[in-house]
Design a protein around this nucleic acid. Structure first.
Lengths: 223, 223
DNA sequence: GTCCGTCAGTGATCTAGTCACACAAGCACC
DNA sequence: GGTGCTTGTGTGACTAGATCACTGACGGAC
């Protein structure tokens, strides 16, 4: 972790924190460090519980569940302006859980030490609301994941994922990565994509999926 | 909701709250009500967000996820001595989620209003730790559910569930209820139970499963 | 060019979920 | 006691998804 001097008032980027009184803004900026993490840094994971709450200024963090079999599911992503608040839960976790947080891109974040977090929760209603709202959002995400895995069809979930994660009409990901994203097997993704291609909705190349007919995908994804 | 006068110092039953200073214990006992809910009361659910944090004194609350298709999964159970802390997240939820909390038995609980909850979180490190530890535990439960649904076989999960929920060697539940418990279809449960019966591990009767060979079940459930 | 690691395609097989039933056990009502 | 009715269970046929064991194809590194 390389320390970086905070150069601007990043607090305003966080929904709810902008209302913090000046005294507490000072606490946040002087007692937390802005850090920069290279892509693929493992932020927390089995056997590695975090000691800071991260407020993301740039980049995205992917939180995923690992199984012994080697299979994975992505639980959620935290992006700039959000906090990686479930790490606070991990801080106090009475058991190691199998979830892992990874910097998906290079990440710049304000790292709030445990003690400062505690002081802020104690002294600021705004900060408390910020924390609980962040929790709420993450828990909603988890509910969503459970609903998807338990009750939704793979083709629908895959179509959604492609739309959601294809920036410029192209999604750069291998079949194996998409499988890990959705918690399924690589072969399942291969077969589904072959079907999508057959229908003319996408074109495939090594490590990438290009959307040709977004309406087709969308029609499936909302059915 | 019928109000009941708190007759004893129930705070000690909650891990971590026993260390609360007397002033805060007073806050808890005087500003919260002990309530009694009949079995099957829906405590929170879609369109019904809770306005109190419940600390369970007696009974159990089942939290489950509902799908439009009518299928369900049980996410976790909160029992006496635990709090239904995810309700605090629901209190602030920016969206209605599809989870529902139901009193599985008659429930006696201390209901802490939103304002009191906030005061306590602000003024007590012990209470904060209590809340965050409770969150942590629930989130672990959710991770566990995700892992089960995504990666574990049904026969193993069913065997575990039978062992876990059969008090006196008998589990009173219909196939449909077990299916809702595990987030699968009734037929799947019927066929698995038929197989367990064929192997001599259980005996079945209408609405009940009797364990005959717990070792057999356990061997499967840990494989 | 050759080697090698990663990526994608495929058939066979098994597990799980869906659909459409049949039938049985308990209960109410006459 | 019989007649329905509701609820719980059994079953076959079929589709979806997961697993296994491969194959070949692509893109560097050398």
């Amino acid at each position: 972790m390389t320390a970086v001097v905070p150069t601007e008032d990043w607090i305003n980027r966080f929904d709810g924190l902008s209302k913090l009184e000046p005294r507490l803004r000072d606490v946040l900026t002087t007692r937390s460090q802005v850090i920069r993490l290279p892509a693929d840094t493992i932020i927390f994971g089995p056997g590695k519980s975090p000691d800071h709450l991260l407020l993301l200024l740039q980049g995205t963090v992917r939180v995923q569940q690992l199984a012994e079999s080697g299979r994975e599911v992505v639980l959620y992503r935290a992006t700039a302006g959000e906090s990686c608040v479930l790490t606070t839960a991990c801080m106090l976790a009475y058991e190691d859980h199998a979830a892992e947080g990874v910097a998906e891109t290079e990440v710049v974040a304000a790292a709030i030490p445990r003690g400062v977090f505690d002081d802020l929760v104690a002294s600021s209603k705004e900060f408390r609301n910020f924390v609980f709202r962040a929790y709420s959002r993450r828990i909603s995400d988890l509910f969503h994941v459970i609903e998807d895995i338990a009750f939704r069809r793979m083709d629908i979930r895959l179509a959604q994922k492609i739309i959601e994660r294809a920036d410029t009409g192209v999604l750069k990901a291998t079949h194996a990565q998409l499988a890990a994203e959705l918690g399924t097997a690589r072969e399942v993704i291969s077969r589904q994509l072959a079907e999508f291609q057959r229908r003319g909705w996408i074109a495939q190349s090594r490590g990438a999926v290009e959307i040709l007919d977004c309406d087709g995908l969308r029609a499936l994804s909302t059915s």
